[in-house]
Design a protein around this nucleic acid. Structure first.
Length: 293
DNA sequence: AGTAATCCCTGGCAGC
DNA sequence: TGCTGCCAGGGATTAC
């Protein structure tokens, strides 16, 4: 569920805390989420490495250290939070069953905390992921060019890459449905189910429309609506339904502002018709049957 | 080659 | 109260 606005919100919050911190130890409790290299190699590689940059590309977070690149995908339920050692554990504290947060809004290590980075100052960054769809990859700096999951991503919203010409070129000749294309990270990076449904609503497009059926004007509307819905998501700190929290343990507020996502049966905010829900590309898809043709 | 279905995983929830 | 079965979905993999 973390999509571009949620990942960016996490990135901003983490950058405050982890930039310039030096890693002392890496603890991997669940090997499933570690793609490469072998889990036993992580601590030795990252020990004494200082985090120099925290960047984002699509839904990926990238931590750059002196000699390594740490590429993180949060999957569906990944949570990445900073933990300040001065906020000590208290077993009497209430721990939220879903977010795993204590009263201090920080993560205690629990059965869903699959990986932790510990810093030399005693603070830590914890990765918690209930459904374990997240993936962690560690590359030596000179190997990072092999990271095809990163380099094959499509155009990045909010950058000069996101141009009308590239948008049109990416859509050219595609035989698929517009919703499927928007979910494809090789076209536009960072969109997921929530913001795809929202962008299609803003553009007035039915999710089942075939790409080749879109007029120039419809493509233009879609091109403009994508950054608009992402920007709104970012402005309100992301969309929290169940698991999403930022690096400081706070939920987002964008779920209050969604036009169609998870609003099936409720009135369309534009025309009051009930919002419909169908399955497209194995994903629940929400749209207004009157506003989206 | 390009698209579509399958699978991974846990917790919430409806139904009984 | 507790069990069962279904649902949510990003993206790699497999199938067509």
């Amino acid at each position: 569920m973390p999509e571009l606005p949620e990942v960016e919100t996490i990135r901003i919050g983490l950058a405050d805390s982890v930039l310039g911190r030096t890693i002392s130890k890496v603890t991997i409790r669940n090997r499933r989420i570690v793609v490469r290299p072998h889990p036993g190699r992580w601590s030795r590689a990252l020990k004494a490495q200082t985090i120099r940059r925290v960047t984002r590309r699509g839904k990926f977070l990238l931590f750059t250290t002196d000699h390594f690149r740490l590429l993180v995908h949060l999957g569906m339920t990944g949570q990445l939070t900073y933990r300040d050692k001065s906020r000590i554990d208290d077993p009497s504290f209430f721990v939220h069953p879903l977010t795993g947060l204590q009263k201090a809004r920080q993560h205690a290590v629990d059965k869903h905390t699959h990986l932790s980075l510990y810093f030399t100052d005693g603070n830590a960054m914890h990765y918690r992921d209930i459904r374990q769809f997240g993936k962690w990859r560690l590359y030596a700096a000179e190997e990072f060019k092999q990271a095809k999951e990163y380099w094959s991503l499509g155009i990045e919203p909010f950058t000069s890459q996101y141009s009308w010409a590239r948008f049109l070129a990416g859509m050219e000749g595609r035989k698929t449905r517009i919703k499927s294309l928007l979910l494809n990270q090789r076209f536009v990076a960072g969109l997921g189910n929530i913001y795809v449904d929202e962008a299609l609503f803003e553009a007035g497009l039915h999710p089942l429309r075939l790409c080749e059926s879109l007029t120039e004007e419809e493509k233009r509307k879609l091109f403009r609506s994508i950054p608009r819905v992402l920007k709104r998501g970012l402005k309100y700190g992301g969309t929290s339904f169940q698991n999403y929290i930022n690096a400081k343990g706070e939920a987002g507020a964008n779920q209050e502002r969604l036009r169609v996502y998870r609003r099936s049966g409720e009135p369309c905010r534009r025309c009051s018709s009930p919002v419909s829900r169908i399955i497209v590309s194995q994903r629940g898809s929400h749209f207004c049957p009157r506003c989206q043709r």
